[in-house]
Amino acid sequence: MLHILRQIAKCGIKTEPPPPPADEMVTVARLQKKILRVLGRALTIRQIDAGSCNGCELEIHALANPYYNIEGLGIRFVASPRHADLLLVTGPVSKHMAIALKRTYDATPDPKLVVAVGDCGCSGGIFGESYASLGRVSNVIPVDVAIPGCPPAPVALLQGILAAVSVAAPAAELDAESAAALRTEPTMGSGVARLPEGAAELAPDAPAGEPPARVGDPP
């Protein structure tokens, strides 16, 4: 125990001051005032990898290290979209993840924010659009802030996340309806809209379909 305490004391506090929000990353400023009123400075984030190479995930992990200490800013990563204020989405959105991403978005309570992460999340990146990739996140769900970079460094991620909740852009004055009209419209087909809600995080209570097979049944 003593050597653990000694190590903690020796390391001291490594946390650096947070960067200022980056206004230029805001793609659509909507509902800012209302969201700020609801959230204050406590923000919960649900991260979704919609098909990335995992480079962005590594940098998102880094936000939790003592240098960036994102929890010290009142921002927390949560396990369910139902507990989230903001979806942090990396891409490109693979076709295989499109339905899960849409369901996760639907399962997130309003008001909600979406931040697209990385060159792939912003534009499809090197993978682009193909038989297997839908490209940028805003092709599937509305996006408020886009953070470029391959992958974006943790400081850029922080700037983008802070921009999503703290930018007082003129559009923030708009009412909910006109702000909604400003959003990037998803271009994915209508098939998605008919999908049942929820089930994104597939909790243990997810509905079971057919009756169970016996042990040893062939696949």
Partner: peptide
């Protein structure tokens, strides 16, 4: 959506837990 034929186990108290593709942590799908 495909209907993938997962192998099920049955018996007293046996149940199924489905996890993903969106996981609880910051990991891949």
């Amino acid at each position: 959506e495909e209907d993938y034929p997962f192998v099920r186990v049955s018996g007293d108290g046996v149940h199924e837990i489905a996890v993903g593709p969106v996981h609880a942590g910051t990991i891949e799908p």
